[in-house]
Each structure stands twice: as structure tokens, then as C-alpha cells.
Simulated scan of single mutants.
Amino acid sequence: MVTDALARNAKANLRAEVRRRRRARSASVRETATGALTENLIALVRRRGPALLGCYLSGADEPNTRPFLSWAAANGVDVLVPVSRRDGLLDWVHARGGAEQPGLFGISEMVGEVVEAAVFQSVDLLLIPAAAVDDSGMRMGWGRGYFDRALASLEEQPPVFALVYDDELVESVPRESHDKPVVGVVTPSRIHEF
């Protein structure tokens, strides 16, 4: 489809721009953003009260989820984090402040016993990464499709929030026919529901 081909090209350009901006952020700017993002994530979890939460373990340039995951472990919030598989799917392990190791693509993943697929089916809230999210809630990921496939595997989809920096909540993102919106976004400055 021509429109999907054009969208893929536009996504590649926007992803490159987002990566460039993320890498240009100073350590102090990232640290300030991490503190504010963590406060907003805690507020979202307190408001929503999930029994089981799914959250990604952030990479070097992504909005940092580690302080939030530490808070969750210290406060009895049950969290699953993803582990990438070679077949393009995700397994999930409990985030209990455990050790990390490099996974596929060199991305850090928590070490732990993989939970049964039925456990992931009972997630009440998902916090997922994004390169950008637009004003309608359309999420643009990083192009590997791991989280898209994870969402598609859920029999009942819980509320899904994307985590981005403030300048990554944009007017519009390129979209392909398979793209789905999220219900909200969490940035260092706010929690926004669409």
C-alpha cells in the first residue's frame, strides 16, 4: 500500500530526529525529567490502582523507568517487565529489583522466571515506550513491533499509556493501517488522557 510505504519513510525520519534530540539531552536535563516523570507515574498508579502493571525497562536514551520500578517494588506494586524473544514476541518477568542482563539488541532486561502467558493477560495497566505520540493518542514506536504484538495478544486490552519526553507529544505522527492509539501519555510535565 502506497500510504503505508510513505508512512514508513516518514516514521524513519521522525525516529531519527527523536533519537538525535534524546542523545543531545544533558545528564542534568535527563535527571530532572526522570524525577518529574517518576512523580507522574506514581500519581497515575495511585489513581488507577492496578493489581498488576506492565512496564518497560528503559534504555539509555528513553524516559527512565528505573526509579519508578524501584518505588513500585518498595510499595508492593506488582509489575511485569518484558523480555524480548527472537520470534518478535515478548515474555514477561516480575520486576522485583532483580539483576539485569543484556537481552536481544543489547537492551538491558531483568533476570527472572518467565511468567505464564495467562499472567500477562491479567495486566490492569500497561506503560510502554514510544518515539512520539500525537494529539489524538496515536503512538509511534521504534519499528520492531514488539509492543504492538504484545497488545494484539491481549484478549481484553487494559489502559495503555505511552511514556515520552514533553517535546515528543506532537501534533501528528505518521501512521500505518495497523497502528493503534494509546489511551494516555505520561511525560515529565503531565499525565494526559485522550
Score class of each variant (00 low, 15 high):
I107V: 14
V119G: 11
G59S: 07
D61P: 00
A117S: 13
S108W: 04
G112W: 03
R86H: 13
L53F: 00
L90W: 15
P82Q: 11
L125S: 08
V111N: 04
R96L: 12
D78F: 11
E62K: 05
F105E: 06
L37C: 00
L41Y: 06
A51C: 12
V115K: 09
N64M: 08
G76H: 07
V81Q: 05
L57T: 07
L89Q: 10
L41H: 05
V93M: 06
F120Q: 05
L125R: 03
A60C: 10
Y56D: 03
F68W: 05
L57P: 11
A72H: 03
E109P: 14
Q121V: 04
F120I: 03
G59P: 03
V111S: 05
W71T: 05
D61T: 05
L52W: 00
V45E: 02
T65D: 10
F68P: 07
L104D: 08
P63G: 00
A36R: 14
R86C: 07
H94T: 15
V115C: 04
R48Q: 15
F105H: 14
D87P: 01
T65I: 02
A99C: 00
V79C: 01
V79Q: 00
P63R: 01
L52G: 01
F105V: 00
I42Q: 05
E113R: 11
S84K: 08
L80K: 08
A117T: 12
N75C: 02
P82M: 12
L69K: 13
P63S: 01
P50Q: 03
L69F: 08
I107W: 15
R96I: 09
Q101D: 09
G76L: 07
E116K: 10
S84Q: 14
W92G: 01
G97C: 05
A33L: 01
C55H: 02
S58F: 03
T38V: 08
L57G: 09
P50D: 01
A60Q: 09
L89F: 15
L37G: 00
D78N: 10
Q121F: 02
V45N: 04
